[in-house]
Design a binder for these strands. Structure first.
Length: 253
DNA sequence: ATGGCCTGCAACGCAGGA
C-alpha cells in the first residue's frame, strides 16, 4: 500500500500536477494540504475521472486539506475534536483498514508572534488527540506538512536556522513527543541522500541551489512501521514549471 | 541588502506562506 502527502499550495493551480502524480505513483491514499478552495469548488470531477475519490475540508484562500483514494475513505473526521479551530488543517479517514491522518500544522510565522503560540497550542492538542487515536487504531499514519524540521540534517544550514521558526527547540520537542507516542519517521528508517529536503523557497533560486528544509513527514504507528518498505521524496514535482514549493513524500507500507 | 517569489482576493497592494 502506498501512502503519500503533498502541500500543493492551491489545488486549483496544481491540479494538473496532482493528476500527473496520481498517474505516476498510483497512491492508495494521497493527503493534500493548502488546497485553498471551498468545498463547492473542489475539482471532484477531474479527481473521479482519474479513478480517485476524495474527502475534503476546504477553506477560502487559506489552508484546506483532502485525502484522495481509489477506494472509499470511511469514518471521516474533520479537525481535532478537542480544539475549537475554524482553520481547516486536519482530515482523518480510514482507507483499506489504515487510519490516515492528514495534517497541515500551522506555520508559526516567527517565534515572537501570536501565530507561533497558536502553533505550539495546536501541537499540544494534536498530541493529546493522537494518543487516544493510537489506542484505538493499531494501523495509523500521520502524514502532512508539519512545518517542523526535526534534526540538523533536515535544514540546509543548521546555524542559520538555529532558534528560528520551523527549527526552534519547542517545535522539535513537539515532534519528539509525537514520535514518543509510538510513531516512526518513515523517511529515516531508510538510507537517504545527504541534503534531502521537501520544501524550497521560491525566491533566490532555492531549489536549484538546494537550499531546502525537510518539513513534510510520514509518521507510522509501530504496526505499520514494521512492514514499511520505503519512503522517498519525489523532487521531480518541485522541478516542474509552476511548481508547488513543496515536493511530495511517498511511503510504501 | 531583512528583500527576493507565489497565491488568492480584490483592486493595482495586501496577507500569508516558510
Amino acid at each position: 500500500m502506498k501512502l503519500a502527502t503533498w502541500n500543493v499550495n492551491s489545488l486549483k493551480v496544481r491540479l494538473p500536477h496532482v493528476l500527473e502524480f496520481l498517474d505516476k505513483h498510483k497512491p492508495d491514499a494521497l493527503c493534500l494540504q493548502e488546497i485553498k478552495l471551498e468545498d463547492p469548488n473542489f475539482p471532484i470531477k477531474d479527481i473521479n475521472a482519474a479513478g480517485y475519490q476524495a474527502v475534503f475540508a476546504g477553506q477560502k484562500t487559506y489552508n484546506g486539506v483532502a485525502i484522495l483514494s481509489p477506494t472509499p475513505a470511511v469514518d471521516v473526521c474533520i479537525g481535532i475534536p478537542s480544539l475549537d479551530d475554524p482553520q481547516k488543517r486536519v482530515i482523518a479517514a480510514t482507507v483499506n483498514g489504515v487510519r490516515v491522518v492528514c495534517v497541515y500544522i500551522p506555520n508559526g510565522e516567527a517565534v515572537e508572534s501570536d501565530k507561533y503560540q497558536y502553533k505550539l497550542n495546536w501541537l499540544m492538542a494534536l498530541i493529546v488527540w493522537l494518543k487516544q487515536e493510537l489506542a484505538v487504531h493499531g494501523k495509523l499514519a500521520l502524514l502532512g506538512d508539519y512545518n517542523i524540521a526535526p534534526e540538523d540534517r533536515d535544514v540546509f544550514d543548521p546555524k542559520q536556522w538555529a532558534g528560528k521558526v520551523l527549527f526552534s527547540d519547542p517545535e522539535k520537542a513537539a515532534f519528539k513527543d509525537l514520535v514518543a507516542l509510538g510513531l516512526a519517521d518513515s523517511f529515516r528508517m531508510f538510507d537517504q541522500a545527504d541534503k534531502s529536503y521537501s520544501w524550497w523557497d521560491y525566491r533566490m533560486n532555492g531549489f536549484k541551489r538546494n537550499l531546502g528544509v525537510r518539513i513534510d513527514h510520514i509518521l507510522l504507528s509501530t504496526e505499520l512501521a514494521k512492514s514499511c518498505k520505503s519512503c522517498a521524496i519525489d523532487t521531480d514535482f518541485r522541478a516542474k514549471e509552476r511548481p508547488s514549493d513543496h515536493a511530495p513524500v511517498i511511503a510504501e507500507i
